[in-house]
Amino acid sequence: MPTYGPMYVPVTDNGEPFYSEGFPVRFYKNDGTEWVANFQPGWTYLKEIIEFEKTQNLLVMAFGTCYIMNPNDTKPIRVFGVGYSDIFSVSNDRLVLQDQTDLTIVEPDGSHWHTERISWDGLAEIKIENNLVTGLAFNPIHDADEWVAFKYDLDTKALTGGSYYSFENKKPWWKVW
């Protein structure tokens, strides 16, 4: 944090002041002035700043929390996530953010969408080729502690495999009929 000059601007998901050490970033406005933001951190060690080519907006990853920012504004455009652990670039300027249980796709304009839940608790060995995400999803059910392969098509938004599945429309195992 700067030791002199104007006070930093705390940036959070809910707009409430945040005064602990977070992720400080210096922004330069179009008029030549600058300001320093202190982003409230998430739950991981991922820190990164990515410029969007189609807009002047930036993706600021503050310890796993994603902030979409315009350098001219002190309030975030969007804030989402707290546990992102990795970022992957995809062929058409998309970004794929890896969480513990699912993925978030950030489009070139800064809009985003989340996949359905893929894993009970953990994703590993993520690879992306031709808009197809492959990897392993952890399955702790029934003392198996195994990793299950999955594929996710970014264009059709179709998931194949993974360790998480819905219990909808299935007879609960704990009820006796």
Results as ranks from 00 to 15, higher is better:
13 D>V: 12
15 G>C: 11
16 E>H: 05
16 E>N: 15
18 F>N: 02
19 Y>V: 11
20 S>W: 14
22 G>W: 00
24 P>S: 15
24 P>L: 11
26 R>L: 15
27 F>K: 05
28 Y>K: 14
32 G>I: 11
32 G>V: 12
35 W>K: 02
36 V>K: 02
36 V>Q: 04
38 N>C: 13
38 N>V: 08
39 F>Q: 01
41 P>L: 08
43 W>S: 13
44 T>C: 09
45 Y>F: 13
46 L>G: 04
47 K>N: 10
47 K>W: 12
48 E>T: 10
51 E>F: 11
54 K>V: 14
54 K>D: 12
55 T>K: 07
56 Q>C: 14
57 N>Y: 06
62 A>W: 03
62 A>Q: 02
67 Y>L: 02
69 M>E: 08
69 M>Y: 05
70 N>M: 09
71 P>C: 06
76 P>T: 06
78 R>C: 15
78 R>I: 15
79 V>S: 06
80 F>L: 15
81 G>F: 10
82 V>Q: 15
82 V>E: 09
85 S>C: 13
86 D>S: 15
87 I>P: 03
87 I>R: 01
92 N>M: 13
93 D>G: 08
95 L>V: 10
95 L>W: 03
97 L>K: 00
98 Q>G: 12
99 D>Q: 05
100 Q>C: 11
104 T>R: 00
104 T>V: 12
105 I>A: 06
106 V>F: 03
106 V>C: 07
107 E>L: 11
115 T>V: 10
120 W>S: 01
120 W>M: 09
120 W>N: 02
121 D>L: 00
124 A>E: 07
125 E>Q: 12
126 I>Q: 01
126 I>M: 01
126 I>V: 13
129 E>S: 15
129 E>G: 05
130 N>L: 13
130 N>G: 14
130 N>S: 09
131 N>W: 00
132 L>P: 04
133 V>E: 02
133 V>P: 02
134 T>F: 06
134 T>L: 03
135 G>P: 04
135 G>D: 01
136 L>F: 01
138 F>I: 01
141 I>H: 05
142 H>K: 07
143 D>M: 08
143 D>Q: 09
147 W>L: 01
148 V>I: 11
149 A>Y: 00
149 A>Q: 06
152 Y>M: 01
